[in-house]
Amino acid sequence: MAFSESPARPSLAGRLEHGFVRLNQALIVLLMASMAILVFANVVMRYVFNQSIFWVEEFTQIQMIWVAYLGAGLALREGRHVAVDMLQDALPAGLRHAIRWFIALAMALFLLTLVVLGVQIAEFTWNQETPAMGLPAGLPYLGIPLGAAAMLLHLLLFWRQFVARDFVQVEEIGDDHAEEAHA
């Protein structure tokens, strides 16, 4: 189950990692819920009160970008990023291990660069304002470096499992009802 995916190990490091995962998960849940509620509320507003909340579009768009980037690290743990494993599968274990290591390293470097560039673009655009809410235009951008940093941290903590392709197995939603269908 998603919320108990990394059982708290007794070690401090383990507990910290678990807390980090939980925090990240909570953030995604909040962002998704808020997006859905705001856009739906806007539809209702338009019919009931004959006017819409004009900042909803801009605000939820920012949240969507944050979901995309802040969810990427968790998606990595669950092996949700589509990749082509065919060549790896055809290789002997030693070579496969080496290639997985190389991929993890390349990804870490890429993410590190993205953190730096993302902070720079957020800084560069901070004085601009978003059209509807007048927020710093760098704020939506900030989701990218924060997400990349979180993903980098996930990758570092999850390195061994990532290399071994030992992804976190989550029960897909709806599986609990599957057996019922056999009846």
């Binding site: 998704m32 969810g71 939603i173």
Partner: peptide, 25 residues
């Protein structure tokens, strides 16, 4: 009547991660 708060949170999380993987692409 099968949804509860806990399940809804799980769904929000899973959809969030699927969304993330799709939108990152």
């Amino acid at each position: 009547r099968t949804l509860n708060a806990r399940l809804i949170c799980r769904v929000l999380l899973q959809s969030g991660l699927v969304t993330s993987a799709a939108l990152i692409i």
